[in-house]
């Protein structure tokens, strides 16, 4: 009898595995073609050195070992200001955007006055194209502001306030999806716990820190991981705010990479990195970020508050 059941289980397991294999085949094929296939060349380029062939046709491709990586590392260390900018953007997200989103989510979860209306307003930047918001924002802090106050220049043009304004914009449009997820996580809180806490004389602030946040903590951790993963690709809306002309003096790494990639060539020039060097730079980021994200996730989950 047990043997029969085992055989049944075994067959079921096998059929499960076959089903899995069949179902993931197509998406994996798409992934292999559209991601691996397309990017394989740029990954390989990170290890190659291109020179114009003297014959006039094609390139002399040689194995570059870690040369491109060394040059990419030099580039990164020369541009440490970009690292600072990217990290500042990250810290602003973590310590301004997320806390504010949690507070707003708390208001909505508690269904305080007009929460339905505020929910809509907070989600607006998610619905309306960033193109529109950045255009309107540029007018508000620029032309409209100078017309109203007679100031010489707007916040984006004044060198003292440019970066701060960029950060402000990033926070201003960030709430949408964060508030959505946080308020839903909060919605899963058992009401009886809240009621008994309130009966015990807990005030709103204590409730927020001891009950609400712990429930939303797993969501916060996941959002953090996604943000960490995107540190080096986050363009911080610089393209939307400053357009094609570029604004390298306050470039984040993601923006810098994006701009350089659009003009990079196979062969290195005295001032421009080649495609190979940019690819190597991208891979360096991956080597740094993947373990960092994993580590951070373990750390945050362990050290985070729990509902108990």
């Amino acid at each position: 009898m047990a043997e029969k059941r085992n055989r049944l289980h075994h067959r079921r397991d096998r059929s499960k595995k076959i089903f899995f294999a069949i179902m993931v085949a197509l998406p994996l094929l798409q992934f292999a073609v559209m991601y691996v296939g397309v990017n394989a060349n740029s990954f390989i380029m990170a290890f190659q050195h291109y020179e114009n062939a003297a014959s006039g046709k094609g390139f002399d491709i040689t194995f570059a070992g870690i040369d491109n990586f060394q040059e990419a590392w030099t580039l990164l260390s020369e541009k440490s200001y970009m690292l600072e900018i990217s990290l500042t953007g990250f810290l602003v997200t973590m310590f301004i955007s997320y806390p504010l989103a949690l507070i707003f989510s708390f208001y909505i979860y508690k269904k305080y006055p007009f929460s339905g209306f505020f929910k809509t307003v907070l989600f607006l930047p998610q619905i309306i194209s960033s193109l529109i918001f950045s255009t309107l924002f540029k007018y508000m802090v620029g032309t409209v502001y100078t017309e109203l106050t007679g100031a010489a220049m707007g916040f984006l043009s004044d060198p003292d306030t440019t970066f701060g304004t960029v950060l402000f914009f990033n926070v201003w449009v960030s709430f949408g999806i964060n508030v959505l997820m946080f308020s839903n996580a909060m919605g899963n809180i058992d009401e009886s716990v809240v009621e008994s806490a309130q009966l015990d004389g807990v005030n709103i602030i204590q409730e927020f820190f001891h009950i609400t946040i712990p429930s939303a903590w797993p969501t916060v951790v996941s959002c953090t991981i996604i943000t960490v993963a995107g540190i080096f690709t986050n363009q911080m809306y610089l393209y939307d705010l400053f357009g094609d002309g570029g604004k390298f003096e306050i470039a984040s790494i993601g923006y810098f990479l994006y701009q350089k990639a659009s003009i990079a060539d196979m062969v290195k020039t005295p001032t421009e990195p080649s495609m190979g060097i940019l690819s190597a730079l991208g891979l360096i980021f991956t080597f740094i970020l993947v373990p960092t994200s994993m580590l951070l996730k373990k750390l945050l989950t362990k050290l985070g508050p729990s509902v108990d």
Partner: peptide, 17 residues
């Protein structure tokens, strides 16, 4: 000298001083 890139001469003068 800090490696900071300026997109134009005028922004080097205005933003970078």
């Amino acid at each position: 000298t800090d490696g900071r890139e300026y997109t134009t001469i005028i922004s080097a003068i205005r933003s970078g001083g």
